[in-house]
Design a protein around this nucleic acid. Sequence first.
DNA 1: CAGAATCCCTATTGATACTG
DNA 2: CAGTATCAATAGGGATTCTG
Lengths: 112, 112
Amino acid sequence: MEKKHLFGKCPYVTSQKVLTGKWSMYIIYLLEQAGTIRFNELQRQMPEEMTHTTLSRQLKALENEGLIVRTEYAQIPPKVEYSLSEIGAKFSPVLKALEEWGDQYIAYMKQK
Amino acid sequence: MEKKHLFGKCPYVTSQKVLTGKWSMYIIYLLEQAGTIRFNELQRQMPEEMTHTTLSRQLKALENEGLIVRTEYAQIPPKVEYSLSEIGAKFSPVLKALEEWGDQYIAYMKQK
DNA sequence: CAGAATCCCTATTGATACTG
DNA sequence: CAGTATCAATAGGGATTCTG
């Protein structure tokens, strides 16, 4: 993923780029719910199947973008925890609005 | 684009799929601002260059997803207007939250 | 003016195997 | 456990050309 100059001038274009990853919104949501969560547990809680390769890449992308924090414990077997960064935590209102709209949208599409 | 079963159970996954298009957020934003807008005018107001082919595809995708309404006037030269649908208009709070967060994010990244 | 039809090209994803 | 490396498959965007 490796993006540069993500911070342009337009908040919409910027947000869109940050949220490019296919699972980014749900990852942020899970981190917000869990507070802190380990890699494998995160993978298990994803709504659809995904390989750890994919999850790993998305996490790294979000980390590079500054949204999440990765904490590695020097032990064997390895233990790595993820949580939201400060700016990542501020994404919360967006998630809230998104959840409400998403539910309305789902309901609306079902009735058709 | 042509997506099926966009309405799953999870509002986040659903939203993410709807917003997949590289320009979807900005298009919705422009339609919200303009109310009603013609194809070429829409293209001119996009923040970055994009061909009409690409814009056309994104608009069709958003139309298929029910977010926007396309009105065609039977005249020559053709005149087509786009506006938000009812469910599309309800996306407004998300845009608002997104704009705020995007600005914060841009400011945060600049200072680093 | 507002597309549709093509082709090309790249980014992203998925699958698999290997590692400390 | 939590990755990395590699390759194959795909989707999405961009450019060009043609149309009523």
